[in-house]
Write a protein that binds this DNA or RNA. Structure first.
Lengths: 136, 136
DNA sequence: ATAATTCAGACAAATTCTATCCTGATTAAA
DNA sequence: TTTAATCAGGATAGAATTTGTCTGAATTAT
């Protein structure tokens, strides 16, 4: 049960953009300072753009910046933008197996666990994270 | 962030064995009633044996049964036996990247999340689950 | 002995992860 | 208006992981 490298990169990236929310930054710069493979980051930023977390600007002087304030972006937003919903177990989606023969008594446990995880991620926004990093 | 099919199968299997903790059951039977691919289950049971969750009996009339009482086996035991420790993020293990340039302020969040998940899984044992299933 | 069963390891298909590369679209500035 | 910089989107591909299968050896009740 791990988050992917991709999600980790996405978090680093949003963290970077959160440090100066007004500036437009280029893929290349973010990639270099945050040690993320450039072309991979490019793909990640496309997902973040489609999810409405960042805004993109094309052409010369183009780049990316946050679409909203750091305090309005949660870890959950980023995780879901990249990996999709926090499912924990597929049977939460594909119920067919669960329903037959009362097999899946564990199902409610996975659902509960999922809620827990979501809540914790939801309650953590990038404004807080930035504060933590400036305290170092 | 999902558990694997393998873990799901393992849980189903322990659930099955928990219903009659004294009986020795064969791979084939478990596989058929719980809809798990037989040879895959065979591998899974080997892991569960090595982790000390089930006991194996070879030869004619051989099979598997729980190594301890259902109430002494938690979901966490099973998940860890199959997938290894609940890591959430690799940086919890490989700290080298985190430490340089104070990059990973998110690290404590992953650690906290991991503890949450572990606790919830630890607090759920197979005796409780069986009770739930008999209530259906 | 024989038949039934697990054990251990090798093998392999499918899927997901982790990228890379190329072409085209867009845009600021010269 | 041309040019250079930059993102968008699709195709591709290697590696790792997941999800199994198969076979032969070891064990054991009868």
């Amino acid at each position: 049960m791990e988050i992917t490298r991709e999600t980790d990169y996405a978090v680093r990236c949003i963290l970077h953009l959160s440090e100066s929310p007004e500036e437009i930054k280029m893929v290349d710069g973010i990639a270099k300072t945050r040690l993320i493979p450039k072309s991979f980051l490019s793909k990640i930023l496309q997902k973040l753009t489609k999810s409405g977390i960042v805004k993109s600007y094309r052409g010369v002087k183009g780049g990316f910046k946050l679409a909203r304030k750091p305090e309005e972006i949660s870890l959950l937003d980023v995780v879901e933008a990249i990996d999709g919903p926090v499912a924990i177990n597929r049977c939460a989606v594909d119920k067919r197996l669960c329903d037959l023969s009362s097999m899946c008594v564990v199902h409610p446990i996975w659902v509960e666990l999922r809620k827990d995880v979501e809540n914790r991620l939801k309650n953590c926004n990038f404004s807080e994270l930035i504060k933590l990093s400036s305290m170092k």
